[in-house]
Nucleic acid binder design. Structure first.
Lengths: 206, 206
DNA sequence: TTAGCTGCCGATCGTTCGTTCGGCTCCTGC
DNA sequence: GCAGGAGCCGAACGAACGATCGGCAGCTAA
């Protein structure tokens, strides 16, 4: 009876989304609002309207929920953004496109961004390393393009790895506080920041 | 006897620093390493070699320890950095000096930087507001100088508040991961980042 | 029909946490 | 010499936490 009711609500309300996705979605929101440590399994269970013990049917522990959120986001992020940095593209175009995507994608998944950024270090060392590897992959790919731009004479920076970090810090800072008024505001700001990064890479007098 | 021994060690080892400072110092390091939630009063007490209950002789609660760390740092930070942004200084010089100080000061108190940045939101709303007000004061002061630079024609940015945020995010990103090899490395990087910010403010094609 | 799996539940375990309290020992001011 | 505060202690309290376990309903395949 209860189950039938839940299924009925489910198919109407949150259309086919299964329990695992419901848990990940609610947990991410709670982790963002209260922090990983302060959000309890009881809180998460309450959000998806099941009992705390039932959570362990889908996830072996609280940490696995956090890891699923962080790793899922970072994997999707790299799939979307890293593709912009292909080697057969002019360095300027590639970086401009990557920064733009970086901002737009991060805005679309703002909760995951904040959780991954803030709560990652609550994970065990090994799972942290998995996610850090994905982040490093992005950073290194960006640094390679910067390096290439320097060799081609379109960029001029004192240190390409430092420049990549500076650009990423600037953009990662933005996506944490920026809440666009509408889609046009988002697109405009993404383009402006892409401009800023290109300007930085061209005008960093060493 | 025990107390006399402690005093003897104290005056030799950590020269006149009293219990309150010892607690703040140890707590900050623990909050940085384990996070505010995961670092317990028992951990802090163990670090300064007293019993947990004795902590409440100096601080009314754990949150007051965190607030003392964050507020103390941000107050000192503003005293040091904000002074560089005086109105009778050329915008370029003022910002260059402020960014340089920002980086050098943050490096000197790296632990406080990370704790203030990451754990601030564990504070009650009112205490958060106190610290946020200090941060906003710095950000606004920087935006004012950027605005002045734009009117004087030395800067060209699409939005002076957005530009100030971009510059601050870049620098705040740096101070969180940057560990200089030595004093020369610190000074060099601080100067380079000051250059980068000036370059950004001059070359942000709107 | 029935064995077995999935999803869920109530009850509860053991641990850790922040905090409180009464009392002890020094040191200082009167 | 004595009152009183500062500093510290051991013991313990109540609450919250992550996680476990046995069992129950409903669905599915043999």
């Amino acid at each position: 009876m209860r189950l039938q009711f839940q299924v009925a609500v489910q198919t109407q309300d949150i259309a086919g989304r299964d329990r695992v996705d419901q848990v990940l979605h609610s947990a991410a929101r709670l982790f963002r609002e209260k922090g990983y440590g302060a959000a309890s399994m009881r809180d998460i269970a309450g959000e998806v309207d099941i009992r705390p013990s039932s959570l362990y049917h889908h996830f072996p522990s609280k940490q696995h929920i956090l890891f699923a959120i962080c790793n899922g986001f970072q994997r999707d992020f790299n799939l979307d953004v890293l593709a912009q940095l292909s080697p057969d593209r002019a360095p300027e175009d590639a970086i401009r496109a990557a920064i733009h995507r970086h901002i737009v994608f991060s805005n679309r998944r703002w909760t995951d961004v904040l959780v991954t950024w803030r709560e990652r270090r609550s994970l065990p060392r090994e799972q942290q390393a998995t996610i850090n590897a994905l982040r490093r992959q992005y950073r290194d790919a960006l640094a390679v393009v910067v390096e290439r731009g320097c060799r081609e004479g379109v960029f001029e920076v004192p240190d390409s790895k430092l420049a990549a970090m500076a650009a990423l810090d600037m953009v990662n800072g933005l996506v944490q506080w920026f809440k666009p008024r509408d889609e046009r505001d988002l697109q405009l700001t993404a383009t402006r920041y892409a401009d800023a990064v290109i300007g930085l890479l061209r005008g960093w007098e060493g």
